[in-house]
Amino acid sequence: MDQELKIELSKHGIFTTTFEELYNWGRKNSVWPLTFGLACCAIEMIATTMARYDLARFGAEVFRASPRQADLMIVSGTVTKKMAPQVVRLYNQMPEPKYVIAMGACAISGGPFRDGYNVLKGIDRYIPVDVHIPGCPPRPEALMHAFITLQKKIDAQQLTGEERPRHLKANEPSEFPVPEFGEHGLEPAQNPDVFHPLRILGQ
């Protein structure tokens, strides 16, 4: 619909929308995160939900303890190799549509603990990540920014067409293989279907 016509109509008290807009509007304003704290970043996540920063303003104050009721996983902290299978399993238990915010340097790449033998070097090796926020820990404002970014992303999703998101494509996976404990580390060390390391431009 023509944007100007829409504005014009709204001036006369007529509200027009599309199904897609309505659907995305509803979804983006009630993203329920999973109660799931891993490390130091989780404390900042808790601080974000408290009175001062008040995450409830973005419709995301309902933290659910069960993955079956959650839409969003905030990977807030260092994922160790011992914890990684559980993180993937929790992600698999969440119903579609589901999103992941990688909060903090550790969840993105291992961060300060990248050299550790038991540290997973980025959760994006096993599950797809929607928003990354750098920081160690990211400030509550940064987490809110990540929320807004996610909301924009949800808002822009199309219901039809080739570009439609994963959960609307019947043949795309919604569960990902859980890594196993090996003798020296996790097996496999990454999931090649999910992990797409950045390429340096021009190579």
């Binding site: 130091c40 404390i43 603990f113 050299d115 540290v119």
Partner: peptide, 29 residues
């Protein structure tokens, strides 16, 4: 062990000064 981040190993590989930011992250409160 679910948050075993190898603080001790990393500190043994780094200088005395470099361990200070890691101690922040021990008891992060």
């Amino acid at each position: 062990g679910y948050l075993h981040r190898n603080h001790e190993k990393i500190a043994e590989k780094a200088s005395y000064l470099a361990a200070i930011p890691y101690t922040d992250r021990l008891d992060y409160l």
